[in-house]
Amino acid sequence: MKPDLSKPFITVLITVLICGFAMFKSEANPRQKILFNFDWKFHRGEVKNGYIADFNDSAWRTLHLPHDWSIEDIPGTNSPIDSAAIGGINTGYYVGGTSWYRKTFEVAKDWSGKKLSVYFEGVYMNSEVWLNGQHLGNHPYGYTAFEYDITELVKTGEKNVIAVQVKNEGRNSRWYSGSGIYRHVWLNVTEPVCVKTWGVSITTPEVSKERATVNIQTQIKNETSENRSLQVVTRILKGSGIEIAKTQSSQQMNAATELSEIQSVQIESPELWSTENPNLYTAVIEIQDEKGKLLDLVEETFGIRSIEFSVEKGFLLNGVPTLLKGGCMHHDNGPLGAAAYDRAEERRVELMKASGFNAI
């Protein structure tokens, strides 16, 4: 009886395919998005020269983001509430003030030639940011994301220090706002030719049950000193991951410039987004050079739906009259304060939906 070699062959084949797929994924993602939440030093209160790189922060508290200091007990007390708080009853007598965050980190030597940026999803409020003692900028507003390019200031293979001063002072809210770096922080690493941050816009100008038009606008920047020939390849995936549409275009891009590429695809029999069935698609956008080498890859999820307001029928979603059942939801998570933990945010939406809401 001959031995059955099919099973070992299949096992080897699967192993090769898995390893090959893993290798492909590693090679195919020049963009890195690294969570920057861990091992920050924190000091509640003002300090002098807290931005200096060699400032001694060894006595400061170590914590992980997201963080809200206003929900924590005031130092020397067993309560976060102070009847003399500037915000008074509007902010529930919680206390803001000024505080500092610092983080020491290293950058790999093989990132030389890459573009690096630090991305803050939200800091409440009036933040000042420094890297290695150099001022990066100020972001006054507490509810929007912001980003700083740190390519020229970061030291590869050495220790770097980022310092953030946060000021929540004065009468600036009529609800609990929290204080601090209350959302995620990311370190982004890209090639000098890449898609800009917030650089993808997707619209669905024509929608029906039979077909939908999807327009994808991609903003690309070339931060090199050379002209580049580029290919912009966009694939549309269903929620299951199956590719259902693809478009590709060429662009000649001058050195140190930006451009906006607009592409359009048709989706047959689209799965429409609604509050009952929030179907989503994914646009996978690749930037390639003239030889097909991948320079950048970004993914954006979107829904296909139409919205309309009618005097006779009110608000229509996908042509269907829809009553908006909304609630005014502030951004804090009760005893967690304003710290935006992913699961807490998901749970709030689940509770709202389970209670019959379809809008916020």
Rank of each mutant, 00 (worst) to 15 (best):
Y176T: 08
V232S: 05
E223L: 07
T190M: 11
V164I: 07
N222D: 02
I181V: 13
T218K: 03
N222T: 00
G178E: 05
N168Q: 14
V185F: 07
W198G: 13
R174K: 10
R183D: 09
V214E: 08
V232P: 06
S201A: 15
Y176K: 04
S201C: 14
Q231N: 01
V185I: 12
W175M: 12
K221T: 03
V207I: 06
H184P: 09
E206C: 13
V193D: 06
T204G: 11
V200A: 09
K167L: 00
I202W: 06
T190Y: 12
T197I: 12
Q165N: 12
S179I: 11
N215F: 09
Y182H: 13
V166G: 07
K196Y: 09
N222F: 03
L237T: 02
Q217F: 04
Y182C: 09
S177T: 14
I181F: 01
K196S: 14
T234K: 07
E210N: 10
N172G: 10
T224E: 01
P205G: 09
V233A: 00
I202M: 02
N188I: 15
K221V: 10
K238C: 03
K167A: 08
Q217K: 03
R183A: 10
N215Y: 08
E210V: 03
K196N: 12
V195F: 15
T204I: 13
G170Q: 12
T213N: 11
E191D: 15
W175K: 09
N188Q: 13
K238W: 04
L230I: 00
K238H: 00
P192L: 06
K238S: 01
V185T: 14
K209D: 10
E169W: 08
G180K: 08
G180R: 09
L230P: 02
T197Q: 14
V207D: 06
T203R: 14
T234C: 01
V233P: 04
V214L: 02
N222H: 01
G170W: 01
N215M: 13
N172C: 05
A212W: 04
I242W: 02
V161I: 12
S201F: 14
G180V: 02
Q219P: 00
T197Y: 14
G199S: 11
W198P: 11
T204M: 15
W175P: 03
R171P: 00
G180M: 07
S177V: 11
Q217T: 09
V193L: 11
R235M: 08
W186I: 07
C194R: 15
N172R: 04
V185A: 13
L187P: 06
I236C: 04
S177H: 12
W186V: 10
E243W: 05
K238I: 07
V232D: 00
N227A: 02
W186M: 05
S177Q: 12
E223V: 04
K238T: 11
T203Q: 14
N172D: 01
E226K: 08
E191P: 13
V161F: 10
W175Y: 12
R211L: 11
I202Q: 06
E191T: 15
N227K: 10
